Amino acid sequence: MNFAEAAERHPEFARELPAFVVAVREFFTSSELHAEFARLELEPAQPGFDTTATHSDLEDDVFIDSPEVVLDQAARFETIRLLLLADHLGIS
């Protein structure tokens, strides 16, 4: 996730993202990647987050990410998930 975030901000990381994805795919089996993403999808986006907290309870919590940050993280997670689980990457 850190590499993908850096790729969004720095062209040199963006150019290296395909090679990074290939390296990860060579290190882990498809089954291992599927299992890890299945596990991650079951975890809360913010561990320890109180789902019963009210909006006013959350306003003062500096450790809770904003909705925008959470959406960015979710989009990045989905992009990486799709890249790592794709049958064919389409790169050479």
Rank of each mutant, 00 (worst) to 15 (best):
A14V: 11
L71V: 13
V62Q: 09
N2E: 13
T29Y: 12
V24H: 09
V24F: 06
D87Y: 03
A45N: 07
L71D: 05
L83Q: 14
A45V: 06
V24R: 04
R9E: 09
A6N: 13
D60G: 08
A45W: 04
H55W: 05
F63C: 03
L58A: 09
V62T: 09
H10R: 14
L84M: 06
L42N: 04
L71I: 08
I64L: 13
A23P: 00
L33D: 00
S66G: 15
A7H: 00
P11C: 09
F13R: 00
D57V: 03
A74C: 05
S56F: 07
A23Q: 10
A4N: 06
E16T: 00
E78I: 12
L58I: 03
E43D: 14
E8Q: 10
N2I: 05
F27P: 09
E26Q: 13
H34C: 02
V22M: 12
E78T: 15
L17S: 01
P11H: 11
E5G: 00
T52C: 02
A35R: 07
F27Y: 12
E32P: 13
E36W: 11
R76C: 15
A86V: 06
R15H: 11
Q46Y: 04
E5H: 15
A75M: 12
F63H: 10
L33I: 15
A14E: 11
I80G: 00
A19F: 14
E12P: 03
P11D: 15
D50P: 07
F37A: 01
V21K: 00
H10Y: 08
D57H: 13
H34V: 07
A53W: 10
F13P: 00
R76G: 01
F13Y: 12
D50H: 06
H88L: 12
P67W: 01
E8A: 09
L40W: 12
D65R: 04
M1I: 08
Q46P: 00
N2T: 15
N2V: 05
R81P: 05
P44D: 05
I80A: 02
R76K: 11
E32Y: 05
P47I: 07
E68H: 05
P67Q: 03
A86M: 05
L82I: 07
E12H: 13
F3A: 04
A6Q: 12
H34S: 08
L84S: 02
M1R: 07
F37Q: 01
V21M: 13
E16L: 15
T51S: 08
P44S: 11
V70A: 12
E12I: 08
D60M: 07
V22L: 14
F63D: 11
R25P: 03
I91P: 00
R15K: 15
G90Y: 14
A86S: 11
R81G: 02
F77E: 09
S56I: 10
E78M: 14
A6I: 12
D65T: 00
H10D: 15
R25Q: 01
F27M: 08
H10Q: 13
V70M: 02
L82G: 04
E32M: 04
T51R: 08
F28W: 15
F27E: 10
E41I: 02
A19V: 08
G90K: 03
